[in-house]
Each structure stands twice: as C-alpha cells, then as structure tokens.
Amino acid sequence: MYSRNKNSGVVSTMYYEVIWVGRGGQGAVTASRILAKALNKENIWAQAIVFFGAERRGAPVYAYNRISDQAIKYHHFVTKADVIVIFEPSLIGLTNVLDRAREKVTIILNSAGKSIEIDGKLKEYQLAVVDATSIALQLNLRVAGIPVINTAMVGAFAKALGFPSIKSIKEVINEVWPSKIGELNAEAAEKAYQETKIIKSSMVRE
C-alpha cells in the first residue's frame, strides 16, 4: 500500500491519487464517480474531482480521485498520481499526463494491443492494457456514435489495483442506470475486468 510522503501530512495505510484522462464525451468524469461510489460501498473514502475550463467534445478531459481508508480533507489539485487511466493511446503524446506519474505508478490503458513506448519516461511502473473499445462495440454501447468505454475502464481499474471488487462496481453501474443500459455497462465492466492484461510489471508494488 502507498503511504503519502510526510510533506503532505497524511499518515495513512492507504492513500492513492488517480488521474483519468479521456476525450470530451468519453465519460472520464462519470468513471471517476462510479469508482468513488464503488469504493464507498466498501467503506473506503474517496473524492471524485473535476475541474472545467474550456472542455469540449474530443479535447482532452481530466477527472481525478483521491482514495484513502480515512476521511480526506484535502481540497487542492491532484498534481501527481499513483494511478493514471488513459482512454486511448493518442492521449499519451497529446498530453503531459505521464509527467504527472509518481515514482511507482500504475498505468491503465485502453488499447487494441499495440505496443506502447513509455519506458523512457518512467522508472517503475505497472502497465495494464484492455481493449475497451472492442468491448464497447461488441456490446453495441455507443452514445452519439462514440463507443462508451468508461465503465469498462472502471472494470480495468479493479483488475489492475485489486480493489474495489468488480461486484461493487457492477452494483453501482446498475444503480446509476437502472435499465438495460446499466446491464450492458455492467457487462462491459465485467468483460474488461476479465480481459485486462498486466503486460508490463517492472515495478514492485507491496
């Protein structure tokens, strides 16, 4: 488990900061909220944070989480992250998000399996890859033509980090959309959970 450095004052057995980066319309903000709700179900405290500027469809959009076993009273930007969730490989070159990685970082990437060159930028990292776009297309999950991958990425988070349980995530999805849409999204999360591969684990995460 990660303990935040003493400079920030938190003495906690569990403390994570998460950056979600997607394109406007892909649902990164909703993903951070689903994750926070699922964590709350398991009595883990979470903030789900969003800052708007001039966001628009297609442009990079960020959402954040703070996660801890204690109530979090921080109210400032998440600048560095222990977990970075990237909704498509093109966002790596387009943004500086990898510069915001902590030394030991977990990167969760939606990709059709193409190899990703990020070794030069990071010292120790765990890379988890899932083809969330294919999962969305298989389930015919689209909004305005765009594949809905956010719920799948929450499933991938659970696989890569080992928490929260996929059960809690599916429950939350079904609560948020109590209909066929919810069922399909829960299925996408489940599929992503099953299919997420840890393809690089050069780090040691205790």
Partner: peptide, 9 residues
C-alpha cells in the same frame, strides 16, 4: 469546483 464539483460521501 473545490467543493461544488468535488464528490464525497
């Protein structure tokens, strides 16, 4: 934003 747009329990 810091409070208005930050979700918590």
């Amino acid at each position: 934003f810091l409070i208005s747009h930050t979700a918590q329990k």
